[in-house]
């Protein structure tokens, strides 16, 4: 039953091509989108538009890195919008009193702690992740209001606001941070035991248990990663807006989840890629920018986002359906030909 070497190589090549075709689809989509926009709208012929898109993509994108881990593990975190509001309020206050560096450290740590708390609800109280984080969505938002007494906070610290509004060598600082964290995220997922454990838990919790993985701990770490990356988003958004308010960014969790799912991470868990999330975030920012430039009504924008979401969510089943159809056709063709052995 041994296959010839040349046969194996040929199969490899085919597989690799098919694989890249599937997994880099989002990158091609982005390129096509840019080409079409470039051709149809004068604003898209200006380098600043693209730089701005990259900057804007960072804010959702950062949180999406964390969410990628979460969705790979088969869960999602709906509390991040509220958590972001709370962390942003703390950032805005902290920067005024403590300075930039200590605030950043504190907020990142708090994000980690909040995330871990979500993780504990999910693992130790065994509440399904979506419901647990739904409840936390209320609670973090309420805490944001209580903490701020319902008032918005401004910050005038230029060193701080420069993070999201400034550039180095023409490239937005926020985007530089985004790229660095994408690399870190990719390394965590692909090259560390933690990343393997996350993938394993997303594939099969039972098998993970048998492999000696501490499933609960892994999940708690995943949720703390979500919290930490959300904290990073909160810091950058506060810096971008020069302010924070307790009601900010409702629906942020949908944008983030949509970004991750559109990037090809399966909602059922088990597979995904930080790099694709990165591209997907840029694509989303491009779509938003384009909608503004084409003067799409802001309410219409929501509908479009919702439809993109639906599309992203149904991608798995659409792909499955086409695969089944292809398989059926192939088997019919095969039956017309003489049978060959299969291994």
């Amino acid at each position: 039953m041994q296959l010839g070497t040349s046969q194996v190589i040929q199969m490899n090549r085919k597989k690799i091509m098919r694989k890249s075709g599937r997994e880099l689809g989002i990158l091609y989509a982005l390129i096509v989108f840019w080409i079409v926009s470039f051709a149809t709208n004068v604003h898209f012929r200006n380098i600043n538009t693209y730089l701005n898109i990259l900057r804007e993509s960072s804010f959702v994108g950062l949180a999406a890195i964390g969410m990628t881990f979460c969705i790979i593990s088969g869960a999602f975190d709906l509390s991040i919008a509220s958590m972001l509001a709370l962390l942003a309020m703390i950032t805005a206050v902290g920067v005024e009193f403590l300075g930039v560096f200590p605030t950043v450290l504190i907020v990142l740590t708090l994000g980690m702690v909040f995330g871990a708390f979500n993780g504990i609800l999910v693992t130790k109280l065994k509440i399904p992740a979506f419901i647990a984080t739904l409840a936390m969505l209320f609670i973090y938002r309420a805490l944001a209001y209580i903490y701020s007494d319902g008032k918005y906070r401004q910050t005038m610290n230029v060193r701080f606001t420069n993070i999201s509004n400034g550039s180095v060598l023409g490239i937005p600082i926020a985007f530089v941070i985004f790229v660095i964290l994408v690399i870190v995220g990719t390394i965590i997922l692909r090259r560390t035991p933690l990343g393997r454990n996350i993938l394993a838990v997303g594939n099969s919790e039972k098998a993970s248990l048998i492999s000696g993985i501490n499933v609960d701990l892994t999940k708690i770490i995943i949720f703390s990663l979500v919290g930490t990356f959300t904290a990073a988003s909160a810091i950058l958004i506060t810096s971008r807006l020069w302010s924070a308010n307790p009601g900010m960014k409702p629906g942020f969790e949908f944008e983030v989840i949509a970004t991750v799912v559109l990037g090809g991470t399966s909602l059922a868990g088990g597979k995904g890629s930080v790099f694709n999330t990165f591209i997907s975030a840029i694509l989303f920012a491009s779509i938003n920018t384009a909608m503004n430039m084409f003067h799409v009504d802001s309410y219409m924008q929501r509908i479009i986002i919702g439809i993109i979401l639906l599309f992203a969510f149904s991608m798995t089943s659409i792909r499955e359906m086409t695969q089944t159809a292809v398989r059926m056709r192939r088997s019919r063709q095969q039956n017309d030909q003489p049978q060959e052995g299969n291994n």
């Binding site: 629906g251 949908f254 309410y299 219409m300 924008q301 929501r302 509908i303 986002i305 919702g306 439809i307 979401l309 639906l310 969510f313």
Partner: peptide
């Protein structure tokens, strides 16, 4: 979740 956004937009 998605139709929530769509309906509200509508």
């Amino acid at each position: 979740l998605a139709t929530q956004i769509i309906y509200r937009g509508g």
